[in-house]
């Protein structure tokens, strides 16, 4: 397939809001069928990075490339048209709408003629249920159920299935497991793997290292808007990654120093 070109690539992207620099010189790539885990503490610039990828913000400088060609997103719709889909923490869905209706929000299937279009509820429900079930969530079998009645993991799964159904090639998952219990989170992780298997490039944003290590092929750690590390699966241990996120290698050094000095912290000048 497109093994030569990454599906999505950032080249030296900077983003500042007025005098405040939020992203510094970010270069990242993600290939089809690969999961890129974006790790970072709160305020590290993850959200800004996602929004830049999704076309909400334009990079101040730097380039975005897709399939080996340079692209530029003026609106979120431009990114969406190119197959970049973002799924937010709570699934970005409507709690009081039915599964079928919310699945097709904005792209309602219709039947009928002329101005008398009819929302095709049966079709919407059937397609939505089928799409979710193909991701292994077999508990969802009735498209007339309300979204609000689903569990957090099911909502996430539904949102992911929706994005994939509508042709997403790059799936940006914004903290999909943050609010979930252990079992639910593992559901979502399985769906991430299923998406990967279908050749979708997944960008998985999280601060839970365990979840990242379960699915990631490629990891990037973001600290204060800059890439602090960029490595492949198996190159770093869980402890190293956690330390990186918590404040860089310095924290690991601190630990090591204190261990060998009876718990005393080093002098500030050293």
């Amino acid at each position: 397939m497109t093994d030569t070109h990454p599906v999505l690539e950032l080249r030296n992207v900077n983003k500042s809001f007025g005098p405040i620099d939020v992203l510094h010189d970010i270069s990242l790539k993600v290939k089809a069928g690969e999961v890129l885990c974006l790790l970072g503490d709160n305020g590290a610039g993850k959200s800004t990075l996602i929004k830049t990828l999704a076309g909400v913000h334009k990079p101040t400088t730097g380039e975005i490339w897709m399939d080996g060609g340079r692209v530029s997103f003026d609106r979120p719709k431009d990114a969406a048209d190119r197959g970049i889909a973002t799924v937010h923490q709570f699934g970005g869905t409507f709690p009081l709408m039915t599964i079928g209706r919310s699945f097709f929000v904005g792209v309602e299937p219709t039947k009928g003629w002329g101005p008398f279009k009819i929302f095709d509820r049966k079709k919407a429900n059937a397609v939505a249920v089928k799409a979710v079930q193909s991701f292994g969530i077999t508990r969802i079998d009735d498209g007339d159920r309300l979204i609000g009645g689903l569990s957090g993991g099911e909502r996430q799964s539904l949102a992911i299935a929706r994005a994939v159904h509508f042709g997403a090639r790059v799936l940006i998952l914004d903290e999909p497991t943050a609010a979930l219990g252990v079992k639910q989170a593992s559901h979502v992780l399985r769906i991430v793997l299923e998406a990967k298997k279908r050749g979708i490039a997944v960008i998985f944003i999280t601060h839970q290292v365990t979840h990242a290590m379960a699915v990631g092929d490629h990891f990037a750690v973001l600290i204060r808007g800059a890439l602090a590390a960029n490595f492949m699966r198996g190159e770093k241990s869980r402890e190293e990654i956690t330390d990186l996120m918590a404040g860089g290698e310095a924290l690991a050094d601190l630990d090591a120093y204190m261990e060998s000095h009876d718990g005393h912290a080093p002098d500030l000048v050293s």
């Binding site: 979120p76 719709k77 969406a80 973002t86 970005g92 869905t93 409507f94 709690p95 009081l96 709408m97 209706r101 919310s102 097709f104 929000v105 904005g106 792209v107 309602e108 219709t110 279009k117 929302f119």
Partner: peptide, 20 residues
């Protein structure tokens, strides 16, 4: 199909706009 838009609007305006 417009009914769906009205419900979506009341459910979450931001998501509705993102959905086109």
């Amino acid at each position: 199909p417009w009914g769906n838009w009205i419900f979506a609007l009341g459910g979450d305006r931001e998501s509705a706009r993102n959905a086109g």
